[in-house]
């Protein structure tokens, strides 16, 4: 489905656009990284810090996908790259999110049952 290169596009123009795209990606990543570290040093409350760091990380991952890995989210992709990414992320959300949820829930229930007793050791065995 790739369009043939008719040679009508001036390669210098595309080169400039691509350099600019990398530059935008670099500046955005720099700001998001710097922002995350600044939040760490700031005096915000713990839950705010965690929320902001997570948000900055997610935005930066999208920036990397878009600007450095050149994945398109708007369907100008001819291969199933985007589907593959979405499928992998879906699997990951189920497995990683599920693991984290199950373990956190288990941990909480064990804390409720109290005492640093034997049952707690069953958790670290998993």
């Amino acid at each position: 489905m790739s369009r043939p290169n008719t040679g009508e596009i001036d390669p210098k123009d595309t080169a400039r656009a691509e350099i600019r795209s990398y530059a935008i990606g670099f500046v955005a990543s720099l700001l998001l990284t710097g922002g995350a570290f600044a939040v760490h040093l700031s005096g915000l409350s713990v839950s705010w810090k965690i929320a902001l760091i997570c948000a900055a990380a997610l935005v930066q991952i999208v920036v990397h996908l878009r600007k450095f890995l050149h994945l398109s989210f708007s369907g100008e992709q001819s291969r199933e790259d985007l589907l593959l990414v979405l499928f992998s992320v879906c699997l990951l959300a189920i497995m990683a999110g599920g693991t984290w949820y199950v373990m956190a829930d288990l941990g909480e229930r064990m804390h409720q049952s109290g005492m640093d007793g034997a049952p707690m050791h069953s958790m670290s065995a998993d």
């Binding site: 790739s2 290169n5 994945l71 992709q77 001819s78 291969r79 790259d81």
Partner: peptide, 25 residues
């Protein structure tokens, strides 16, 4: 980007002929 991307990463572009198509797979 003026051309459709065939694969992740910066595409070589049609000007590279075979290498561009080979890179797709």
């Amino acid at each position: 980007m003026n051309e459709a991307n065939l694969y992740p990463g910066l595409n070589l572009g049609g000007g590279h002929g075979d290498a561009h198509d080979q890179a797709e797979n």
